[in-house]
Design a protein around this nucleic acid. Structure first.
Lengths: 211, 211
DNA sequence: TATCGTTCGTGATAGTTTTCACAAGTGGTG
DNA sequence: CACCACTTGTGAAAACTATCACGAACGATA
């Protein structure tokens, strides 16, 4: 029950949850840390350590009960709650996210869409009308937005982030390839495609250099 | 000039490069590790350590020459090379990637698009005709594909990955929320939106629990 | 009930990454 | 030339993360 949980641990919990969902589909009643480890690409000891930060969920000699651990992990990851989300940026990436089923399934419900392009403002996406970013604060308050998803160009990202924080947002999911400056109490998760591309490029190049 | 470079270091190099591009635009000739650190959200010592793994690029008393370090980093990250890429999966995410300018700018040139949906096969994207995944090996050989971008459903991901490896691919950029099993010599970079969503959810929940 | 094979939970250990602190190099100035 | 303000590059220390190894619990079996 330690206080500070490392990012790597949280990400592994995510993997375990997905593995458990598969074990459930396969009809398994219980799984061992060893089985979870293999599916998650880690070790049995790591699995047990990760879980032990939050409590003691297994039975010695028999492993973990699939359904039980599944809902425990959902609880730890906060997947029971639902969050009212605003999507800022109605470009290709914004659109892909808007229709990404996992968003809704993880409890993120989209309550507003913004763009700065006059040609897009007023268009309908699902049941929502695309709003001008100029009205961001106003709409955030009206709809009760808790979370902002940023799918805007780098240039606009910091400004939108600051305004979202000003409007009282609880967290930000940032797709712009830039590090946002926000107060420490606002969690930001970055999905930075450029970094991933460059990391892959590095791995590829390193490989061909060594060969 | 150590052998094994940690993933975190590589990702920071990416940040430094972006910062340098900005410093260049702003007309700066040289920067200190302190300046790079602030832009990249880290510390001056970290910046120097990261760079020192690859050589000694600064001048004591004066910092790093912006243009010079920029091209050094591009070299380290392998951004000079161009890679012939295949996009597997022509859904929303595939489309967003296909039009993502950073892809082309990082030296990834798309040489083929695949899908399994008969309704999509035969459609044109840019100058490319969407191919059936059934012809994957064939087309990979014809076009000389070096890299596969997977934007397919989880169910199909492992199969496509194995076939891409069989077809001699050098690396994989995987958007499916699953861990691929590939031979160790094939680098895989995962962009797992589900994990990011759950990590954010954890941070949000943790926060509201503590408050 | 006693024994056995299994698997968890966890303190100790090993390994990795980050931070610290300072000697050494650089250009400028009088 | 001697000194100064500045900033790098790097060994050593600290912090963090992963692995190991083993006692303790559990159900099954006779």
């Amino acid at each position: 029950m330690s206080r500070s949980i490392s990012d790597s641990t949280v990400r592994r919990l995510s993997h375990y949850l997905r593995a458990l969902e598969d074990f459930e589909k396969a009809g398994d009643i219980s799984v061992s840390s060893e089985q979870l480890a293999q599916r998650g690409g880690t070790t049995a000891a790591q699995v047990r350590k990760d879980l032990s930060h939050f409590g003691s969920f297994g039975k010695r000699g028999h492993g973990y009960e699939v359904i039980g651990l599944e809902s425990t992990l959902r609880g730890i990851l906060g997947l029971g709650a639902t969050w009212r989300v605003a999507l800022v940026g109605a470009g290709r990436i914004g659109r892909a996210l808007f229709e990404y089923p996992a968003l809704a399934m993880r409890g993120y419900s989209c309550g507003a869409v913004f763009d700065s392009d006059p040609a897009k403002i007023g268009q309908r996406w699902g049941g929502l009308v695309i709003q001008s970013v100029d009205r961001l604060e106003e709409v955030f308050a009206e709809v009760g937005i808790e979370l902002a998803i940023l799918a805007v160009p780098v240039k606009a990202a910091q400004d939108v982030a600051s305004r979202a924080v000003g409007a009282g947002v609880c967290g930000i999911l940032n797709f712009a390839p830039t590090r946002l400056r926000v107060p420490p109490h606002v969690p930001v998760t970055n999905v930075n495609l450029v970094i991933e591309l460059e990391a892959l490029s590095f791995a590829l190049t390193r490989r061909s250099r060594e060969a």
